[in-house]
Design a protein around this nucleic acid. Structure first.
Lengths: 226, 226
DNA sequence: GTCTATAGCTTGATAGAC
DNA sequence: GTCTATCAAGCTATAGAC
């Protein structure tokens, strides 16, 4: 039986349709909450196509999770590479922290409204998976953490008054806020009594960056007290 | 057919065993990733007991999610009630923010080491559910948000320089960091290259509070710029 | 309250025709 | 590549004996 590699040399229309529908349904209900039949039914193809293209349901899930990783990692690394992080940066710390965090967030939303919409299900899927131990190794450790490490290094250079551990803590908390925010659970809408819409992504990003840069600045104040 | 109410007037040993094992397995794999058989098998009771005590698998899950809510909400409301939040608090803002956030976090970890361990699976389950839209209404909106609203009100009193929207954003981001942290995914261990252990909960709590109070302080600086 | 037995359905995966 | 047909296993839930 033929089986195509996860690199996806062969990309028929059906293969794409399956991936898109799988992403949509997995984002809604998680890996175990979606059957292969539900995916192929939504895609309008036969059940056996999943096994033909991806071998197993696990194979399909992994391909859904990884097909956007390379582009995202490349964008994150390219944007941070333009920063000049040599010399004394203590007078422009907050501005640099803001830039670095924004560089990390931006690729999740693309550059055009179409890209942003096209990444909507992917964002929710990332959020759903982020708080689970199950996918830590195969997804995050393998494919996301190397880039995160580069960002932590950059933040260490900028925030030289903080220990590496403190920067790790802060970035990890920031990741928690970010993943919860892109889940778009609607909780902020309720808590604000309708005054805030969680679908207003631009405002959300801005506030998140405010929050996290404020935290870096606040932690610095605390570490200077010592 | 007899079915017991979710208030659980009748609490046999088997009923408790089922709840404990369900909590453990749901925390590992989520609602759809666990079968009723796996739960009853771990509990050492017959499959049909789940239907006898809880009606359906959904009923069991809801009971698992809600059985600890009342105690937690009570502890959160009682601790915050002792604070005197009248008058001018601008000179002790950071200290009050720290107290309020700590009051919110504490009940998740209990007061004794035994309680902390007994709440371990519950914490992970909360984390798993927090980034999903599926349980927002039946769990969070209904049972957690009323208390969160009280905490937001308290934070508004303390941080009178911030708008209510800003306080909502900040508390929501804080909740994202918190839920990700109690998931104990082990990611911070990797990112810190082994220098930080995610199982060191006391340190985690302290750093989280540092991070969030810093963010409140940092947001204040920004709002004073305007 | 606890068990056996089982109904009725859905699941992931495969074999083989075309 | 795409389909039909099908398998074996697992699932939730229930009926009924004790």
């Amino acid at each position: 039986m033929q089986r195509n590699s996860s690199l996806g040399r062969i990309n028929t229309a059906n293969r794409q349709k399956i991936l898109d529908c799988a992403e949509e349904l997995f984002a809604l209900s998680g890996f175990d909450g979606v059957s292969v039949r539900a995916i192929t039914s939504l895609a309008g193809v036969d059940v056996s196509q999943v096994n033909y293209y991806f071998g197993t349901k696990d194979g399909l899930f992994e391909e859904v999770m990884l097909r956007r990783v390379d582009r995202m990692s490349h964008a994150r690394l390219a944007s941070i590479a333009v920063l000049d992080l040599s010399g004394d940066m203590s007078c422009q710390r907050t501005e640099l922290n803001r830039k670095i965090l924004k560089f990390f967030v931006n690729p999740l939303f693309g550059e055009t409204p179409q890209e942003r919409e096209g990444l909507a299900n992917y964002r929710k899927l990332i959020a759903l998976v982020a708080n689970s131990k199950r996918w830590q190794d195969s997804i995050f450790k393998e494919h996301y953490d190397p880039v995160v490490d580069r960002y932590i290094n950059a933040l260490c250079l900028v925030n030289s008054q903080l220990s590496r551990d403190d920067v790790c803590w802060a970035f990890n908390f920031f990741l928690g806020s970010l993943t919860n925010a892109i889940a778009e659970t609607g909780r902020i809408d309720r808590l604000s009594r309708g005054s805030v819409q969680s679908c207003d992504l631009d405002l959300m990003i801005e506030r998140l960056i405010d929050f996290a840069t404020g935290a870096f600045a606040g932690m610095s104040l605390k570490s200077e007290e010592k």
